[in-house]
Structure formats: C-alpha cells, structure tokens
Nucleic acid binder design. Structure first.
Length: 817
DNA sequence: GCTCTGTGGTG
DNA sequence: GATGACACAGAGC
C-alpha cells in the first residue's frame, strides 16, 4: 500500500517548481525519438505500463533554416494537412531569444529538415544539430516528454514505495581483461537475498545469465550499487560480451538490452568521460554519485569508498565482514562462506546508503523534468535548475533568452569569494562560524537575478524554494524521527537546498547557460566579500585569533577555557550586526587545528577524531606506512605531544632500517597510460618505474588503465600483483634422469602474498620518503630549527650539542595577542 | 616554471 | 541519450 503524502493538487504558483500534470506514481519513462513514450507507473503496489505519444520538439532562434519548406511549414493551429512536415509555435519574447518552438511527428525528421536548410544556407553538408552551435536548443526525448506534459516522476510516492534492488560483483581482478566474476550478491528492499556463484571460469556465463533472469523476475524499479557505473556495469558488460550473453535486464515491453553511450560527467570531481548505461523501464543508481554530491557540501568524507562511507554514516554493522580487495578471491577459495557474507554486507550497506542519501534526488525527480537516474548524478545548475526554468518559460508560452547575442554573460568576468589565511601553526579551542547559504541569501535579499529573465521566474523559484525548504525542515523536526513523514520532509528540504545552492553557480556558468548573467554573479560575490569582511572585523575587535576564512565561513581561536555557550554567544552577537536576511551560524568547535595552507588543515574534534582537509596534508603517493605515520604524527602535534612526534618518527625509521615492515606497506600504485609498444619505444631514453616493475616480472603485455603496485629495491622496481592468478597448478614437463619426459605438477611459485611480505626494499630511499613527503607536511607546525631537530634521520646528538632537549620544544602556537 | 592531463572508485 | 559544482599532483614542455 502506498503512502500518500500531500494528495492536494499543485497550486498555480508551484507549477514552475513541480510541473502541473498530477499523474501519480511514475517510476520510469522511456521515450523514443519517433514520438513513442513508455511510462511505468506504480499503482497500489503493482507496476503498470502505458504506451503514449508525445510530439518531438526543439527551440529555434529563427525560422531561416526551415523557411524553404514553404507550405510544409505551418503555425501550430493552421491547416490540418498531411503535407505539413514541420509546425511551429511563436513564443513571446524579444528579438534575441528562442522564439520558435519547432515540432514534427518525429525527432529525426525535425532535425533532418533543419540540417538540410542550414546546409543550403551555409553551403556545406551538416550532420548534427550541434554543428549549428546554440542557434537551437534541444533536450533529450524523455525531457521533451516531461517538459511538454508537465509530468514528473514519483508524484504522491514516498521513497519507501520504490522497489530497489542492489547487486554487487565479486571478481578475481579489477580489470575484466585480467579477471572474471566469481560471485554476485543480490538483495532488494522487499526482503529478497541471494548469492550466485561461479566456482570455475566455465560457470561465469551461466552466472551472468542467472543474474539477468533474477533481475527480470524481481522486477525492481531501481538498480543500485556503489560505483555501479565505474565498475560493476562495465565489468559485467565486458564479461557478457566475452561469453556472448545478452544483458537483458530491462523491463519487458522495451528493448531489454542494456544500452551504453559516452557521456562526460563534469559534476565536480567527476569531470571526465565515463560510460553511461541505461536500461528500459528501470533507473540505475550509483550511490557514489550521491556520496560525492553530499561531500560537495560538507567536504568531510575521508574517502568515497563504500566501507569508509558506511562507517562515516554509521550504517556499518558491527558484524560486518572486511576483506582486503586483493585477498577476496583467495579467501573465497579457502572460506567461501566468509566471502558470501562479505558480499551480502556490501549490498546491505549500499541499501543503507541509498536510504540515507537518495531521498534528495528522489525529491528532485518530483520537481525537475528529467529521469530520476539522471537527477541523481546531474549537475544541479545546468542539469536540474535549467530544465526547470525552461519548462516554466514554455508553460508561459515565453521564449527563453538567447545568450550568444547578448554580451552580459561574458563581460561579467568577476572575482570570486574571498580566501584568507591569517595564521599557520597549531591553534587550540577553534570555532567555525559561517553564513548559511550566503550567496542565495544575498540574491534573494537584494533581488539579484539574471537580467535576461524577463518573467522573474529565477528569483520567484529561489524565493519559493527558500520558503518551502524552511517549512519542510520544520515538518521534518515535528514528525517522529526516522518516520516516513520525517524522512520525506528531510529529503525534500535537502533537495531544495541543492537547488538553492545551485542558483548562484548557474548565473555565473558562462554563456552556455541560457539564463546566465556574469554581472549579476559578480555583484553577488562583491556583496559576499563585504559581508565576510564585516564578520572578520567584528571578530578582530573582540580579540579573537583569526586562522582562515573562505567565502562564507571563518575558523578562529577563542581564549582558552571558553565554554561552548560563550562561543555561541559571541557568534550570535556578531550575527545580530549583519544585514537582515543574512544569517551567521555557529557551526562547530574543535579541540585543535593545524593550519597548513589555505584550505589545507587538520582538525581534532573534542571526541578525538582527526579530520584532514586539503590534499597538502594527505599523502599523494599513498605508501601505506607513510599515511599511517602522518595521521599519528598530526594527532600528536595537535595535542602538543612533541616527544610523541619524535618517538613516532624514530620508530618508523627503525622499522624501516630493521625491515620490520612488509613490502606491501611501502608500495605505491600508479595507473598505466602507455601501451606496451609505446613504452618500449621510449624506454631507452626515459624509463618509468611502473613499467620497469612489470617488465622485471616478465610481463610484456598490459592494458592502458591497469593499476600497478610496486616498490623499490636497490636493484630496481618490483611488481606487487594485486590479484591471485587463477588455476595455480602448472604442469611442468621435465626430463627425468632416465631420459623419459614426465609431467610434474606443482603449485605456482609465488602468490602475491609472498611478494607482499618481502623485505628487500631500498631502506634509505624510504627513509627519505618518510622525511621528505610525510614529515614535511608537519613543517608548518614547528619552527625551522625545531623541525630539523625533530626529523633528523639519526638519533645522534648534533655536533655541537647546542640543541635544546626535545621535551622543551613547543609547536608553533596560534595564540591571541 | 608553466600548462595540460589525470584523479577520485571498484575486486 | 552530454556537461557546464573541485582541487590538486605529476607529466610534459
């Protein structure tokens, strides 16, 4: 039974935000370019499919390319004749806008007709609408369907109503060229759990077939996993191709084959090409996208890996099985049950992550005219806000602005937010205060919106979102914690926050954004800098020790012994001096902070957790021993335990010198970018450790993109394989004493574990690495002399014996004047 | 030194 | 059937 939340019709003023068509329960849409659309709706617990038609359309700045059609081009309300190829609707708007909505019964026909006309005009053949620059504005078929119908996903549904299935592959290697699937864990939120296995390579094809059959049988609306697009689907696709097993996991009624196409996901740190997979009738969700989006705001997640993230969100079970990635297949051979549990724990955590993080995209899908799976990973500015704005303009028969003709987007090259580093070193009793939604607050308070938005919809939506968000936040608190209602409101407010925070970035997005306005964006940052400066002045006047400030927030140290209440009172008193509509908030307090550089610092919480921000304080080389050293040393330094830092350093050096650390602790990992041929050509002039390590191990073939782990010895580099080869039995034909040849079986000589435990590394090299790349990150915590003394490689006293005793060394404290 | 490219994650 | 939110290190010039 579905829970109906807010069954009331959509108020007129909210049509911009939520669309206007009340159709409930849409869980998936698949639209073809020929005008066919398949809609799946969840009605009282069952899924119904309907086949519909929509009219493919796009927006044009002029009719010049289609004028040649003559009578075959008609305004929308005239001549019902079969000779009409294209119709258009003239939208209200100034000369420079997308004044014409062109449509035809088929998308390809629409585009071909335009391309032909443009080809005549430009006197060259054209193949794609993209070649015509931004004279035309197009969206995908599903977006066309949703924008013109005013429908959205999930109307009247809550997150619990979705049928979600998680599956996770366990493989013998990370690279599908070098390994295979040996196990799949599957579960769904209706209580289903299953583990499929392929003990031998021959069973892999059947395993894939079974997985597909199970998905069809369970028939979920959504398929989820962590790094689904980055690992499971590409791996599955590759193995399915090898075995020629069709990947039929879509909903019956559409083509059941997984489709894939290239896309550039330029969302935050994901700005690179990756393959996008899509399935008819189901939504594919990668929980890592949600983690990334969450971290964009909080910037607090140490790693995006599933296990780390599950711990971070406290959804990891205490009984959870942990197995090192490279040990999984070997463990499976010895103790398959353990790996079964491990894999099931993985999918269970993915479900937990989904419940925790996917509510917001779910709520976004109830607003923006795009598929749920796209909204889960789309950039909120171009990917979500803009479709909402365009839909709103079309609803009003208004032409969206055409930027290329206007200068305003480009000439607004402006300064961004202010970034200050006031002090480096170690501070105690640190407070973080920041302005809640600084930029959107400024936009709303001072009515700064894109000048090209004639209808004022941008600011209208921003205002509506801000008000509604507060209401949902309030409702989330009023309802019982973790109740369906509370979760629904919490997710909705989170979705609105995403949109609100996108508003500023969208205005500054440059000329590709339809509603961009660089000047307005510049005005926002200018006012933002002024607000930040007044906050900093107020803190200085009150004698606080400023550490660093960035756009809308500041870290500072308060006098020793202050209580949290005193800190809050200080922040509130400063907040009360700011303009109405600008809210300065007390965000948190920390026992200590190491300030290294702008945006690079470590925090120690009062419950002794270490939070590290910025890559300057993280290890880029990622030798495990160095990483561990750095975390411990940071902790010691931040509590003023200088002797502890020194001892830790001496211990680590001694561990290296006495070869107490296994090679795996010292290995780095790099991704190969050269093909074997390419490297062999350049090898004489320029050698690279990763390739030399492979060649040294007798490997002459590799794929670009393979990750190679290796460590350094005095003789060269040693490859540390990340996986155990399958079929470890080799048959060795030996000539025996009597001259006969007989087969001799033996197990393979080395497993990766043997190599990982070797100790033949170049000790002096790693002592250098410890000092130069790890200890160096503590340089800002001490004076130059103290640093030299602390990290002197040898224990010998200095020549002249003038060093002060270690016990007397203090870190560089950031203190009040 | 500067610009360009790659990276995050997955077994 | 595309995006348009980072912030840095390392390679290549």
């Amino acid at each position: 039974m579905q829970t109906q939340i807010d069954p009331t019709p959509i108020p007129i003023e909210d049509e911009y935000l939520f669309g206007w068509n009340p159709t409930p329960g849409i869980v998936s849409v698949w639209a073809h370019r020929d005008g066919r659309a398949l809609i799946w709706r969840r009605v009282n617990g069952t899924v119904v499919r309907s086949a519909e038609h929509y009219i493919p359309w796009l927006l044009a700045t002029s009719l010049q390319d289609v004028k040649y059609l003559g009578d075959a081009l008609q305004p929308h309300d005239e001549h019902a004749s079969h000779k009409v190829v294209l119709r258009y609707r003239k939208l209200n708007g100034p000369a420079s806008s997308y004044k014409y909505l062109l449509y035809a019964r088929e998308s390809r026909l629409l585009e071909k007709t335009i391309l032909e006309g443009a080809g005549h005009r430009l006197r060259r053949p054209l193949n794609m609408i993209n070649e015509l620059g931004d004279a035309y504005y197009r969206v995908g078929p599903v977006e066309q369907y949703l924008m013109s119908s005013g429908k959205v996903y999930f109307r009247g549904m809550t997150y619990q109503d979705l049928h979600r299935l998680q599956f996770d592959l366990e493989t013998t290697a990370l690279d599908p060229h070098r390994g295979r699937i040996f196990l799949v864990a599957i579960r769904d939120n209706h209580g289903f759990e299953r583990v499929l296995e392929a003990a031998t390579p021959e069973e892999e094809a059947h395993l894939i077939y079974e997985l597909c059959a199970l998905i069809r049988e369970r028939d979920p609306d959504v398929i989820e996993n962590h790094n689904l697009f980055g690992f499971d689907l590409p791996f599955l696709e590759h193995r399915a191709t090898v075995h020629r097993v069709p990947l039929e996991i879509g909903r019956t009624g559409g083509p059941m084959v997984m489709e894939s196409y290239q896309e550039t996901l330029a969302v935050g740190p994901e700005a690179r090409k990756r393959k996008r997979f899509s399935v008819v009738g189901r939504e594919l969700i990668d929980t890592m996208d949600a983690v990334r989006r969450h971290d964009f705001v909080v910037r607090d997640i140490p790693s995006y890996g599933l296990k780390e993230v599950a711990k971070y969100f406290r959804i990891a079970s205490p009984q959870r099985v942990y197995i090192e990635g490279s040990d999984i297949f070997e463990t499976y051979q010895k103790n398959p049950n353990l790996v079964r549990r491990y894999a099931m724990d993985d999918v269970t955590e993915v479900d937990g992550l989904s419940q925790r993080l996917l509510g917001a995209p779910f709520a976004l899908a109830g607003m923006a005219p795009r598929r749920y799976e796209r909204l889960a990973s789309a950039g909120p500015a171009m990917g979500i806000l803009e479709p909402i704005l365009v839909r709103s303009y079309l609803r009003r028969d208004a032409a969206p602005p055409y930027q290329a003709a206007q200068q305003s987007a480009e000439d607004g090259l402006h300064e961004g937010g202010a970034v200050h580093l006031f002090a480096s070193g170690i501070a105690e009793q640190v407070v973080k205060a920041d302005v809640a939604s600084l930029y959107p607050s400024l936009m709303r308070t001072f009515r700064i919106g894109p000048s090209c938005d004639r209808l004022g919809i941008f600011l209208n939506i921003l205002g509506r979102l801000t008000d509604l968000r507060l209401e949902h936040k309030e409702m989330a608190l009023q309802n019982k914690r973790h109740s369906i209602e509370s979760n629904h409101h919490a997710a909705t407010q989170a979705a609105m926050k995403i949109l609100i925070n996108a508003a500023y970035g969208y205005m500054g997005a440059g000329k590709m954004a339809l509603f961009a306005d660089g000047k307005a964006a510049g005005e926002v940052t200018r006012r933002g800098r002024a607000i930040l400066n007044s906050i900093l002045d107020a803190l200085r006047q009150r004698g606080m020790a400023l550490i660093e400030a960035d756009t809308d927030g500041v870290y500072f140290a308060v006098p020793r012994g202050w209580s949290a209440a005193q800190e809050k009172e200080l922040v509130n008193s400063i907040a009360s001096e700011l303009p109405a509509g600008i809210r300065l908030e007390y965000e948190g307090r920390y026992r200590a902070m190491l300030s290294h550089e702008v945006k690079n610092y470590a925090l120690l919480t009062y419950d002794n957790r270490l939070l590290v921000h910025g890559v300057a304080l993280r290890s880029s080389r990622a030798e495990p021993f160095g990483d561990r050293f750095l975390r411990k040393a940071l902790h010691c330094a931040m509590v003023g335990d200088v002797v502890g830092v020194r001892n830790l350093y001496l211990e680590t050096v001694s561990d290296l010198r006495n070869r107490r650390l296994p090679a795996s602790e010292l290995a780095t990992r790099v991704k190969l970018s050269k093909k074997p041929e390419t490297y062999m050509e350049a090898r004489n002039s320029h050698q690279e450790p990763a390739y030399e390590a492979l060649l040294g191990a007798g490997r002459t073939h590799w794929e670009v993109g393979e990750r190679v782990r290796f460590y350094r010895t005095r003789k060269g580099y040693v490859w540390l394989p990340d996986e155990t080869e399958e079929a470890p039995i080799v048959t060795d034909w030996r000539e025996q004493a009597d001259g006969k040849v007989a087969p001799q079986t033996k197990t393979s000589l080395v497993t990766y574990q043997d190599i990982a435990n070797r100790r033949d590394y170049d000790v002096e090299h790693y002592v250098q690495v410890l000092r130069n790349s790890y200890a160096a990150r503590l340089s800002k915590a001490f004076s130059k002399e103290a640093f030299e003394q602390l990290f002197r490689a040898e224990q010998q006293p200095s020549l002249f014996d003038v060093d002060p005793p270690i016990e007397s060394i203090e870190p560089l404290w950031i203190r009040h004047n």
